[in-house]
């Protein structure tokens, strides 16, 4: 796959001595939705800020569509739109004035019909003359997205785009992001909502303590790291797991009314057949069984805690 952003050996140490990023190597593919996951302070925003030109890297290189972000910053920045995490907008300006400002700042000639379309797509057209201070938090968030799109970027960074946004609006934003991707825009998003990454991302990168851990196709990641659980609802509750079954990764649940067996779905022998045989041998009957997959959230928590 052709990469649109190439990051090599990137590092950032702040003047305070804090190392926010170290040895980051990553390629973002053209046209994909890439989700960057990580706990607070992991380095997600620093990484985005370096690519966008807000923070100067201490080491390594970043190229955007073949252009270096430092030596050829005009070319790289004109291709990028950034929606920051904080609701940082001019307060007293109208939505329309801010759209014109953003487009001009990125070197594009005025194009009212394009700006109108962006505002309509984000349901902001009716608010074009409203001062930004009069808008709700959700609308301000959409204004930030509209501003980031005002110069027709090829790459869009969304730093926690749905933080503090209600469910309906969140789903609306997901649709908008998919539509943007369909139009050829590459999207990189950071999020705390694992559900968001699970719903939208093509690939996922997990960053923790300034280091990039896993970078993987979302489905592959879920298959590779996702664990399955088999829950058996027992006919008679158990007080303890019988010692004969101690070799199995079993847990008692629901006050002894259920046995939970965790297994790796990727392995050829899951051990389920053996477990069921042993249960039968020891006269432990069950009246129901069901299996479940771990969510991306659980995978993420596991990854982060393994690194810690």
């Amino acid at each position: 796959m052709e990469s649109i952003i190439s990051i090599s050996d990137l590092g950032k140490t702040y003047a305070s001595g804090l190392t926010a990023l170290s040895d980051i190597n990553l390629d973002i593919h053209r046209g994909e939705i890439f989700a960057l996951l990580g706990p607070n302070g992991a380095g997600k925003t620093t990484l985005i800020s370096i690519i966008c030109g807000i923070v100067t890297p201490s080491a390594g290189t970043v190229s955007v569509d073949g252009h270096d972000i430092l030596t050829d910053y005009r070319a790289t920045r004109s291709k990028i739109g950034l929606v920051p995490q904080e609701l940082a907008t001019a307060t007293f300006e109208s939505v329309w004035a801010q759209m014109e400002f953003s487009r001009g700042l990125f070197g594009k000639p005025p194009n009212p019909s394009f700006l109108e379309q962006v505002l309509r797509d984000l349901s902001l057209w009716d608010k074009r003359d409203a001062k930004i201070m009069t808008l709700s938090g959700g609308m301000k968030r959409r204004v930030l997205i509209a501003k980031a799109l005002a110069h027709e970027p090829q790459i869009l960074f969304l730093d926690e785009p749905t933080a503090g946004v209600d469910v309906e609006l969140r789903h609306g934003m997901w649709e908008m992001v998919r539509a943007l991707r369909a139009s050829g825009v590459t999207i990189i998003l950071t999020t705390h909502y694992i559900e968001e990454a699970e719903e939208m991302a093509d690939r996922i990168g997990v960053i923790n303590e300034g280091k990039l851990g896993v970078v993987e196709d979302k489905n592959v990641l879920m298959n590779k790291l996702g664990k399955k659980q088999l829950t058996l609802t027992l006919q008679y509750p158990l007080e303890l797991i019988p010692t004969e079954l101690a070799g199995h990764p079993l847990e008692l649940a629901s006050d002894g009314h259920a046995l939970v067996y965790t297994f790796d779905a990727q392995q050829e022998h899951t051990g389920i057949a053996e477990l069921l045989r042993q249960l039968d041998q020891h006269g432990i009957g069950f009246k129901d069984l069901h299996s479940s997959e771990s969510s991306l959230e659980e995978i993420f928590v596991n990854l982060v805690s393994e690194k810690a």
Binding site: C52, G53, I54, Y73, R74, A75, T76, R77, S78, I80, L82, P84, E86, A88, T89, A90, T91, S102, L105, F106, G107, K147
Partner: peptide, 14 residues
């Protein structure tokens, strides 16, 4: 102060 400087810093302006 307001944080809107991010836009100027990330824009293709010298």
């Amino acid at each position: 102060f307001s944080g809107t400087i991010y836009e100027v810093l990330s824009a293709p302006v010298s």
